[in-house]
């Protein structure tokens, strides 16, 4: 039902989608220090994919995504919930933030943390939920 025959939109989307997704990853990763974070990044990514959906159609969007939106938010919830577990092993309350600083040969110092894992979970949940709603409504007859 939603299908655009516009060549301009088709072509623009093909180029914009990777850029937008990259930008969403950028927002996700810098979120702890600068404006951004899982929620915003997820909305950007979902918007990008929604654009793709409007330019093409639901089946080709699903093919492009490979995973179903349900799996995405399921995985997101799992990651977010799991990110609280390591703290339990240290005898701290569930979901206490833990940080590790790792040295990598070429990248230099990289900080890994459970809040990052949690934020990735939020990111996936937002993408999955929004896309699930959009696709369900787009498919409805």
């Amino acid at each position: 039902m939603i299908e655009s025959k516009s060549l301009i939109l088709h072509t623009a989307t093909r180029f914009l989608l990777p850029l937008q997704l990259l930008f969403s990853l950028f927002l996700l990763l810098r979120g702890h220090d600068e404006p951004g974070g899982g929620f915003i990044a997820g909305l950007v990514a979902a918007g990008a994919i929604a654009l793709y959906l409007f330019a093409f159609d639901v089946p080709s969007t699903k093919r492009m995504l490979r995973a179903s939106p349900h799996d995405l938010f399921g995985l997101g919830l799992l990651l977010a919930a799991v990110s609280g577990i390591p703290a339990l092993f240290l005898g701290k309350p569930y979901l206490t933030a833990l940080w590790w600083e790792l040295e990598f040969p070429f990248f230099g110092e990289i900080k890994l943390s459970t809040p990052l894992l949690f934020d990735i979970g939020v990111y996936l949940v937002v993408i999955g939920s929004v896309l699930s709603i959009v696709m369900t409504l787009a498919e409805a007859e």
Binding site: H32, D33, G36, G38, H70, G74, G84, V122, V130
Partner: peptide
């Protein structure tokens, strides 16, 4: 370890609230 206060609140100070919220989001979907 974060300069973005909003994000720090969301994913560190009040993680449990956020966890609840994303569950609600998934539930709405």
């Amino acid at each position: 370890y974060g300069r973005n206060i909003v994000n720090v609140i969301l994913v560190d100070y009040r993680t449990l609230d956020t966890l609840g919220e994303i569950f609600v989001l998934a539930l709405a979907a």
